[in-house]
Design a protein around this nucleic acid. Structure first.
Lengths: 191, 191
DNA sequence: GGATATATATGATCACCATCATGGAATAAG
DNA sequence: CTTATTCCATGATGGTGATCATATATATCC
């Protein structure tokens, strides 16, 4: 109907991306329609292809954004609790709040299925791999300097266990084992 | 068109379940149509609702089946390599063959997204939780008796790391970090 | 062997969705 | 202030898919 100003256009695009990043993490890319994303941003579906080349392209960008926001939070957490090493991150990542709020949580568990089923050179897969590299590096930096050898391996173990624990805890939510897993992984990785 | 004998009916149902368990693990429940599952079993889509109440019910049964077959394989592996403890399982689970063949692989990474997004009392979620309990118990039994304390926690850490590593390795497949993660988690859990 | 029950094929239905086409209206440019 | 640009809303379009209805041929039962 009406044309928007340049600033408004850029803002809308950002809003669409943020909303897509949330909805895709909550319910998966396939279960969310383009029209729904646009509606949640206060638009109709028609203008979508002016902003993004395809739904797949949106998903790839949303994946990158979700990873980016996550890594930023990890870094902030590391600065706020510099003396704790991994502990602060483990508390936050393996807490029930994170398990129960996938829309605002880490992209690694949420986009894993989408990325795994993406094409070999697909955008989501690429975004995912880049995001994982970022998170792995962030954990490596958080490991105490007392961990000399196998620092990288330790970081990858921690990342895998964190992502796996949250994935399983979400999938088994409602069963007592969900909390048990979060707790166990937290204690084992901290110790 | 033609009616099948009782035995044939039971066999077809089993075949449909096995095929569904494979296709759902490979491509996710949403991406596989009922008609495709039936066609792969040599049937047409019409008879489906004579066997299963809904696609969702099929998915729940397929999930249970996939977990069951998996646990059986773990048990067999444990008997064949009784002296190795976890090592044999780690070799198999964290190998590239398992990463690259989700259709025949562990249900835990493949059904995680479906279960997490299932209803609070949904069938897939329930099947998933039961499956996880089974796998956790199997790992616990595999841990060497030298691990006295925190045996349960250790098992849950190992399970989480295994599932997380395969999930990430699949999602980042094509990037070098995929192999790196499998290798790192294997070494860390074994050591 | 005839009658009945039922598994399955064909085909319809209804809904959803990604993507494209068009037009109007406001904004940017001159 | 005029004019051209372009953002976006309305509305196809074409495809897909879950589920249901019906017909038919065959297995099971008596």
């Amino acid at each position: 109907m009406a044309r928007s100003s340049r600033l408004a256009v850029a803002e809308k695009r950002e809003a669409v991306l943020d909303i897509a990043a949330r909805l895709f993490r909550e319910r998966g890319v396939e279960a969310v329609s383009v029209a729904e994303v646009m509606a949640a941003a206060g638009l109709t579906h028609g203008g979508f292809y002016g902003h993004f080349g395809s739904k797949e392209a949106l998903a790839a960008e949303a994946c990158t954004r979700a990873f980016g926001r996550n890594e930023a939070r990890w870094t902030a957490l590391a600065e706020d609790y510099a003396d704790e090493g991994l502990a602060a991150l483990l508390r936050s990542y393996l807490g029930p709040e994170h398990r129960d709020a996938p829309g605002a949580g880490c992209a690694a568990p949420s986009f894993a299925a989408e990325a795994a089923r993406d094409a070999p050179e697909g955008g989501i897969r690429r975004a995912y791999a880049a995001g994982i590299r970022g998170l792995a590096g962030a954990i490596e930096r958080l490991l105490p300097s007392s961990v000399r050898r196998r620092r990288r391996q330790r970081a990858l173990l921690a990342l895998s266990a964190m992502v796996g624990a949250v994935s399983i805890a979400r999938a088994a939510g409602g069963d007592g084992i969900s909390d048990e897993i979060l707790q166990a992984v937290r204690e084992e990785l901290a110790g």
